[in-house]
Write a protein that binds this DNA or RNA. Structure first.
Ligand SMILES: [Mn+2]
Ligand SMILES: [Mn+2]
Ligand SMILES: [Zn+2]
Ligand SMILES: [Zn+2]
Lengths: 136, 136
DNA sequence: TTATTATGTTATAATCATTCTAAATTAGAA
DNA sequence: TTCTAATTTAGAATGATTATAACATAATAA
């Protein structure tokens, strides 16, 4: 009953499997990552259900949808406000938990009402740096 | 001859039309925005050429590709380092020219070699704020 | 200037992520 | 247990982007 109180949605086996996969997941998986992982354990799972569930979870603010990757949406179950560090070679995404005080002046605001911000740091992850060295 | 020196690529009428459209364009257009605008003047223009040209321009660092919009890539001919202010309702993108000193500590860096950063500010643009009010 | 050719353009097909549809199933309320 | 609105499913549809291969041409050099 506690899960139902938390999520405010019908708890189907499919949804529980997706939630279990997302719980504490720091990899920022895409819909197909989730489908691949979850359908191994639950082969009845449909791709549409992954999309439907992610859409419902996003609507209820249980996951954040990231547009970091222009190929596909990626999803983040970590709801604490935070930023990201992105490897330009392998597209790995790592959390940056720091509160940057980023305020715009009125003239920079252009009449917008600002509700939030997000910083992307770009670079090369340690794994890809190692890979580079071995190719020289 | 000066254009050729600037761009280091064959200058075809199609490319010149695209470059002319992008010159000073602050709207951060998508490939289809560009195709629509340019093919009005140059109806022989193919969609593939828009993609090919954008790819070439990106490779030569004459445009930046933005992944702000998860539906489609958007392109920015403004090469000065800057950040963006995004309307969550109409997806308008406005430039923010300010240099934020955003440095990560070693422990936040996770072994990454950091090459840059980009801040997205989210909010509602003045046009959409007006639209909201009239719907109340 | 003209011929040559590497490069660019085009229509079209292919691909990939995502959304839609409509029929079958089911979680949770009564 | 029964009932029903919500969910799942396979598959089709859509939309952005990329690939293909025949045709055209900008830029180079003779
Ligand atoms: Mn995260
Ligand atoms: Mn810009
Ligand atoms: Zn990497
Ligand atoms: Zn707006």
């Amino acid at each position: 009953m506690t899960l139902k109180k938390t999520y405010h949605m019908k708890l189907t086996p499919q949804r529980l499997a997706i939630l279990e996969y997302l719980e504490g997941n720091k990899a920022h998986p895409s819909a197909s990552d989730i489908y691949k992982a979850v359908s191994e354990k639950y082969p009845m799972m449909s791709f549409a259900t992954v999309y439907n569930t992610l859409d419902t979870l996003r609507g209820k603010k249980h996951v954040r949808e990231l547009s970091i990757d222009s190929q596909k949406k990626r999803f983040d179950p970590n709801l604490k406000p935070h930023h990201h560090l992105i490897c330009l070679e392998c597209r790995a995404i790592t959390d940056v938990h720091r509160n940057f005080a980023l305020d715009l002046t009125d003239s920079e605001r252009f009449g917008y009402e600002i509700t939030g911000n997000h910083v992307d740091f770009y670079g090369v992850c340690p794994k890809c740096k190692r890979g580079r060295r071995s190719k020289i």
